Simulated scan of single mutants.
Amino acid sequence: MTPRQRLDELGIELPEVAVPLASYVPAVRTGDHVYTSGQLPMVDGKLAATGKVGERLTAEEAAGLAGICALNALAAVAAAAGGVDNIVRIVKVVGFVASAPDFTGQPQVINGASDLLGKVFAETGGHARSAVGVAVLPLDAPVEVELIAEVR
């Protein structure tokens, strides 16, 4: 089954590529790899939630937002690669979690991105990953995700 077929089966539509907030591009292709810029949980051009995880949001809520970030990153990769079916595998995911001082569940939050990628890409969705707690993210977003994908 192709990534497009899995997205259809899951009832997921890739969003439009998010408009950059500053001086950068959403994704860059070099050879057989696409590197995305950090993607926020934007839905229809608006941030889906704000605040720190462990204060304003639970880890479960933030995991859902990480999934949105992953979809936005997939849209950027697909645009650079000529379509989602040209994505061969997900190589690396880096997730940033705006965390309350005592919050230590960053890996569980970024599971929201990893789990979504696994559903869409099956065995080629397995990836290396970092989940990092930070004090604050752009626009007071709770989570940000970037990824590296191998493409054809």
Rank of each mutant, 00 (worst) to 15 (best):
V134I: 15
A62T: 04
S23R: 14
G82K: 09
P3E: 00
G133A: 13
A73F: 01
D44W: 07
L57Q: 01
A100S: 13
V136F: 12
G125S: 05
E13W: 00
V109P: 05
G126F: 15
A98I: 15
A59P: 02
T30H: 14
N86C: 12
A141C: 12
V120T: 09
A128E: 15
V145Q: 05
A76W: 03
G125Y: 08
A122R: 15
V19M: 12
K52V: 15
L65D: 01
D8F: 00
P41W: 01
T30V: 10
G126V: 12
V151R: 02
P41Q: 01
E16Y: 06
M1L: 13
S114D: 06
L74V: 10
D102F: 12
L116T: 08
A79P: 09
G64A: 04
R6C: 04
N86L: 11
A128I: 10
R89H: 07
G95E: 07
V136P: 00
D140N: 14
A81N: 06
G95L: 10
F121P: 08
V151I: 13
A62R: 01
L71E: 06
A81G: 08
G118S: 09
G83I: 11
P20Y: 01
G125V: 04
A98P: 07
A122L: 15
V94E: 14
G118Q: 08
R89I: 10
F103G: 00
L57A: 01
G11Y: 01
L40I: 11
L116P: 02
V136W: 10
A62Y: 02
G54V: 02
M1N: 13
Q5G: 07
V136H: 12
M1F: 11
G133P: 06
D115S: 14
V28I: 11
V109G: 02
N72I: 03
T30R: 15
L137W: 08
P107Y: 07
N111T: 11
N72W: 03
E146D: 12
V91N: 13
V143H: 05
R4D: 07
E150Q: 08
A100H: 08
V93R: 02
A100D: 08
A70W: 04
A27F: 01
A79I: 07
R56C: 00
S23P: 00
L10R: 04
N72H: 08
D85C: 09
G67R: 02
G38C: 13
G105T: 04
D102S: 11
D102P: 00
A141N: 10
E9P: 00
P138F: 11
T50Q: 09
A113R: 03
A59Y: 00
V134E: 07
V28M: 07
E16W: 01
P20T: 04
S114H: 04
V93Q: 07
E13H: 06
P15H: 02
I87A: 07
V120I: 15
